[in-house]
């Protein structure tokens, strides 16, 4: 069964602004805020223990879509189902879905505010109305998953390094034990080690809790490593929702919207064109190395 299902969701920022704009039509471009990207008829679904990678340029509507998933933005048309329940059905119950569908914003460390790491992570569980024992258990678990050591629990989150702050902020969402984890460019601005640790934390959480993950990233290489399916967006429209193979096979389509296959795939495609290997449907370094080694050894055995 689908854990989360997005059905024909459309949203435009302009209709609210339109009314205002009509009144002050004479304003120049200079005086309008950048129109945030709208989304148009997006449909996809995600199952337990599945990772959906979302790609698209800035302005493709990724961030807008992410905020409709947990009800922060109400779509103009279409809706989001969580375990078959329409999350927008009852306005008063909507906030409860935010605990089930955890949303990690871009640069989430900017939301930290408490005196200690531990207190900050317990903000979410506290809002859920859990008892203290339960809160403590969840917070400790969440901090463990993101690899924050016990001696940092009582430190101020502002004393941590950039990568640690990011992971504490992630733990703040994980402590609510969401069944769907939605992340908007979680690795932006981190160094290679920080990126790796963060992605590992996300995958560990998914495996331990059988959760679904929806992750926005600019890095094809990262997405290729962890995703089961890809959702490709362009200017608010859904270009594709399909397996890695089917998305990357259509390279022209990706290039036409300014995206491309992972670097390693480019190498494999070039090698296949030269007739040196016979399979270029690989998207990670590991797979590519296996294929080249096999070709290599295969030909030596002849």
């Amino acid at each position: 069964m689908n854990l989360l299902e997005v059905k024909n969701v459309s949203f435009s920022y302009n209709k609210a602004a339109n009314k205002k704009e009509r009144k002050t039509k004479n304003k120049t471009d200079n005086n309008k805020y950048i129109t945030k990207a709208a989304i148009n008829n997006i449909s996809f679904s995600v199952k337990n223990n599945e990772v959906i990678g979302v790609i698209g340029h800035t302005g493709s509507g990724k961030s807008t879509l992410m905020q409709t998933l947990n009800g922060l933005i109400k779509p103009d048309s279409g809706t989001v189902y969580f375990k078959g329940n329409n999350i927008f059905l009852n306005k008063k119950e909507l906030y409860k879905f935010r605990f089930k569908i955890g949303l990690v914003f871009q640069y989430p460390e900017y939301q930290l505010f408490e005196e200690t790491v531990f207190k900050d992570v317990s903000f979410g569980p506290k809002n859920m109305g859990l008892d203290e024992e339960n809160i403590n258990k969840r917070v400790t678990e969440a901090l463990n998953i993101v690899g924050i050591k016990k001696d940092l629990f009582s430190k101020s989150p502002f004393d941590l390094s950039g990568g640690q702050k990011r992971r504490v902020a992630l733990a703040g969402i994980l402590a609510m034990k969401p069944e769907v984890l939605v992340l908007d460019e979680p690795t932006a601005g981190l160094d290679p080690v920080g990126r790796k640790m963060l992605l590992n934390s996300i995958i560990n959480y998914k495996n331990q809790n059988d959760a679904a993950v929806i992750i926005v990233s600019h890095s094809m290489e990262d997405l290729a490593k962890i995703s089961d399916k890809l959702l490709v967006l362009n200017e608010g429209n859904q270009v594709a929702f399909d397996t890695l193979n089917n998305v990357f096979k259509n390279r022209e389509r990706l290039q036409s919207i300014g995206l491309d296959v992972p670097e390693v795939t480019k190498i494999m495609i070039a090698l296949k064109e030269k007739g040196l290997i016979n399979n270029d449907e690989v998207y990670t370094v590991k797979e590519a190395a296996d294929i080249i080694t096999n070709t290599f050894r295969g030909c030596c055995n002849d």
Partner: peptide, 27 residues
């Protein structure tokens, strides 16, 4: 953006008495 992030952590800014609302502003 910060308001949205805290809402995603279940913060509510609309309900409660005066002191509760002021407290809700801290995050």
């Amino acid at each position: 953006k910060i308001m949205s992030s805290q809402k995603a952590r279940g913060a509510s800014m609309e309900s409660g008495g005066l002191i509760k609302r002021i407290k809700a502003l801290l995050p």
